[in-house]
């Protein structure tokens, strides 16, 4: 288990090279090797969505992908999209609407929401609910999250909320 492979990838715009065990999954690599602790681990089964990340522009489960599979990839985490301001409107809407309580699911939820709105800013409530069904929230009951995403979608597509 101690054999390592060297992996080169880009994380939040920075080039990273590390020798890692092949069995290490991507979210553990980010959290433990790079101290990017904004991505959370909820189930390690690919069910709860707390570890949702963006790899080469697509959202993935950080617990279902090995870090060595990210060789050459562009990885973005909540830290990256926060610092760039890309999802500032979503974060503001979540804050105003209290679309988070404990905040453990929130980074994954925001990345899933951003993914939906990038593809379809006019998504309706049912489409929003379906898209975030892979991201579990145990606190809010989801309605505030749907409200917040819907409000941002409307603003982005030029409709008044």
């Amino acid at each position: 288990m101690s054999d390592t492979l060297t992996v080169n990838l880009t994380v939040n715009g920075e080039k990273v090279s590390r020798a890692i065990e092949p069995r290490r999954n991507l979210v553990d690599f980010l959290r433990e090797d790079l101290q990017l602790t904004g991505s959370h681990v909820g189930c390690e089964h690919g069910v709860c969505g707390a570890c949702t990340l963006r790899v080469n522009g697509e959202i993935v489960r950080g617990c279902l992908m090995l870090a060595v599979q990210a060789e050459g990839a562009v990885v973005e985490t909540i830290e990256g999209v926060s610092d760039s301001g890309e999802i500032a409107d979503l974060q503001e809407a979540f804050h105003e609407r209290n679309a988070l309580q404990c905040g453990f699911c929130t980074p994954g939820m925001l990345l899933a929401a951003a993914d939906l709105l990038n593809a379809n800013p006019g998504a309706g409530r049912d489409q929003i609910r379906e898209h975030i069904s892979g991201n579990y929230c145990r606190c809010t009951g989801y309605q505030a999250i749907v409200d917040a995403i819907e409000a941002v979608g409307r603003k982005r597509s030029g409709q008044s909320s």
Binding site: L36, G38, S39, V41, T77, E79, F94, F104, L110
Partner: peptide
């Protein structure tokens, strides 16, 4: 009033126990 303490959680800058070393 919106929760001041929610902002760090929205940016992945909270501190849950497993985030600490």
């Amino acid at each position: 009033v919106s929760r001041a303490g929610a902002k760090r959680l929205l940016e992945g800058r909270g501190t849950f126990v497993d985030d600490m070393t």
